[in-house]
């Protein structure tokens, strides 16, 4: 058990990075505009991220498992470590980096190192979703924003009451967003371990039974929560205050749009529901919450005819999108070499 935990530590570190960084995508606008206190945000986020991971985390994790079927726990450890280091480094630079890109880059690094054929079908599905998710969020944000504007205008809600409504809505939507984040992004944290972690079924007081994967996801959820509490504050203020001068209502629309998109790409139940009616469904793929939230911000920007978008910061984020998978792939390749040859661990 103890060696397993040591190997899982890199995944937990990655979870911490995700909490430090991606939780800001859900709560940054709310906390950055001072509508929700950081402590409240962190608490709600932790609870719902963990619930999302345990209840709905398996779909997207399965896709990550297929992209690189990492068959040795030492390899999984190294891949997760490489992704985590890349995310940590970029977080340090204050860039809203995506854990999704980092882990996919690191898996590609493993594929290259082990000489395993890259599963291009899965890779294209993931890459496609990277493009599609921000665009979809932008579309949602655009329409929801207009709808909300009409409602506010027609309802003539008092500024003070609107403030109260927005604040409560931000917490509700933030909880939904955290759930979606946990459901969708736990794949990035623990997806590489699902085939190698030796956990049996765990029965908790005869009430709940957690499968091996769910125990992994629970650990991942806790790691994310620690990341949220210890390191996400600064990134939240970057997202909320620097990228776009948001009104709280606009912030709410961005988070709601992004949460819907993350949920669409994570929910097995919704996928089955849509398919049962012969409707097109969304692939269960880990999508980047960073890309999604930026899509939402752009959607609002377009709705307001492009006012106030800070293009320089947008450029830095775009640079991070390209840099993070590349950096992660290189770090992963080098780390695998070191772990195998210096520490004599099996990585393939």
């Amino acid at each position: 058990m103890f060696p397993t935990l040591i190997f899982l530590s890199s995944g937990l570190f990655l979870g911490w990075s995700l909490g430090a960084n991606d939780a800001a995508n859900v709560w940054g606008t709310a906390v950055g505009t001072r509508m929700v206190r950081f402590k409240s945000a962190a608490l709600v986020c932790s609870i719902f991220v963990t619930l999302g991971a345990i209840i709905s985390g398996s779909g997207a994790a399965h896709t990550i498992g297929k992209l690189g079927a990492i068959n040795a726990i030492g390899g999984a450890f190294t891949v997760a470590l490489a992704a985590a280091l890349s995310v940590y480094w970029m977080t340090k630079l204050g860039l809203p980096v995506s854990t999704t890109q980092a882990i996919v880059g690191a898996i590609i690094g493993w594929n290259l190192y082990s000489g395993t054929q890259v599963q291009f079908d899965e890779l294209y599905k993931i890459l496609g979703s990277w493009v599609f998710s921000p665009v979809l969020t932008a579309v949602f944000a655009f329409f929801i924003f207009h709808l909300v504007k009409v409602i506010i205008r027609k309802a003539k809600i008092h500024l003070i009451r609107l403030d109260g409504l927005t604040r409560n809505s931000l917490i509700l939507v933030g909880a939904f967003g955290s759930y979606s984040l946990g459901a969708n992004n736990i794949a990035n944290v623990m997806g590489v371990f699902t085939t190698t972690a030796p956990f049996g079924e765990l029965d908790i007081g005869g009430l709940i039974t957690l499968s091996g994967a769910q125990q992994l996801f629970l650990l991942g959820g806790i790691a994310i929560s620690v990341g949220v509490f210890t390191y996400s504050k600064r990134v939240m203020y970057t997202i909320g205050s620097e990228l776009y001068k948001m009104t709280p209502v606009a912030a709410l629309v961005v988070v709601l749009s992004s949460s819907i998109v993350l949920y669409l790409f994570a929910s097995k139940g919704l996928k089955m529901f849509l398919e049962s009616y012969g409707l097109p469904s969304f692939p269960l793929v880990p999508v980047s919450s960073s890309q999604s939230i930026v899509g939402g911000v752009i959607g609002i920007g377009i709705a307001k005819k492009g006012r106030n978008i800070k293009y320089a910061i947008l450029g830095r984020i775009l640079f991070g999108w390209i840099a993070s998978p590349v950096i992660a792939a290189v770090v992963s390749f080098i780390s695998l070499f070191i772990v195998q040859n210096v520490f004599a661990q099996r990585v393939i």
Partner: peptide
């Protein structure tokens, strides 16, 4: 702690 964004203006 109401209307943190518009408090100054109000």
């Amino acid at each position: 702690l109401l209307i943190p964004d518009a408090r100054g203006d109000v």
